[in-house]
Write a protein that binds this DNA or RNA. Structure first.
Length: 283
DNA sequence: GTAGGGTTACGC
DNA sequence: GCGTAACCCTAC
């Protein structure tokens, strides 16, 4: 709207970084007013600084744009003050720690890049809420089932809007839901990844059946991947269940021990008072 | 004043 | 079409 976008210059970025090193992230007003940086940042508001730093931080955390050195999140002024050599050092460290730009574009483990559209459609069809799902619900659903990028939360809103524009989903107030056409069209692809509350004996079967087919189509491949993930989730659920049982067992033992201790204390008490105490095992 | 979510414009 | 940067809005 209105005013054209004002791209950040490298001087401004640098001033921001130095400001964060000096005052700490979150002190945007202070940084902006600091005479050392204010000449450069005069056209930026504290909000701008915050937004820019957010972008830089997202980028530094493993993704982001192609041609710039990114700086990692610096938590507070503790990152020992001033000195631009420190900054350079930090930038160098990032360059070392983070893979080169083209390497980070493709996940190293050979996975295909995330298909957010499919994930969202999956989420909506699984959540299956009559009035639609809130963005946070969609986010949590996807986050639980898929590896997502740190900036996924922001991508999601953008993605949802586009899906709504293309009528693949519809937006009602703050809620998103599948359109009729999508609802009838989307049931299957990632469907297998839906343990929900239904009987969990199914998915393992599903993956077996899917195994009978060659992964000849992307949809099938996706379904198979999803089935594997479900199986994985299942085993984790079982593991969690086992651990719960174990915890309960230990709690019970602790309970019993406490009772025994109480009994022993009472017996000891009586003995010290010279009382004769008999134990009746059948009590 | 700041954080975080949402929106829009831009470049690939 | 997609991801990202910059901007906007709102709650705290």
């Amino acid at each position: 709207m209105g005013a054209p976008k004002q791209k950040w210059t490298s001087e401004e970025e640098d001033a921001l970084r130095r400001g964060v090193v000096k005052h700490g992230a979150g002190k945007w007003r202070t940084i902006q007013k600091d005479p050392e940086f204010s000449p450069v940042l005069s056209s930026r508001s504290n909000i701008d600084l915050k937004d820019k730093w957010r972008n830089l931080s997202f980028s530094a955390s493993g993704l982001g744009s192609r041609d710039k050195i990114r700086v990692p999140r610096i938590t507070g002024p503790s990152a020992s003050p001033s000195s631009s050599s420190l900054l350079l050092l930090t930038a160098n460290k990032v360059a070392e720690a983070a893979p080169p730009a083209d390497a980070e574009k493709k996940p190293q483990d050979g996975k295909t890049p995330p298909k957010y559209g499919a994930m969202i459609l999956e989420a909506l069809s699984e959540l299956n809420e009559p009035n639609g799902s809130e963005i946070s619900a969609i986010y949590h659903f996807i986050e639980q089932r898929h590896e997502v990028q740190p900036n996924f939360r922001r991508l999601l809103s953008s993605k949802l809007r586009r899906l709504a524009e293309s009528k693949k989903i519809e937006k009602v107030d703050k809620f998103y839901r599948l359109t009729d056409s999508s609802a009838t069209r989307t049931p299957a692809p990632i469907k297998a990844s839906a343990p929900k509350q239904k009987d969990i004996s199914k998915p393992a079967k599903t993956s077996k059946i899917l195994g009978l087919f060659a992964a000849s189509s992307p949809a099938l491949e996706a379904a198979m991947t999803a089935a594997v993930k479900v199986a994985d989730a299942e085993s984790k659920a079982h593991e969690a269940h086992d651990q719960m049982m174990e915890a309960e067992r230990i709690l019970k033992m602790a309970d019993d021990t406490q009772s025994l201790l109480a009994i022993a204390a009472e017996i000891y008490d009586r003995c010290t008072r010279g009382e004769i105490t008999t134990l009746n095992p059948m009590a």
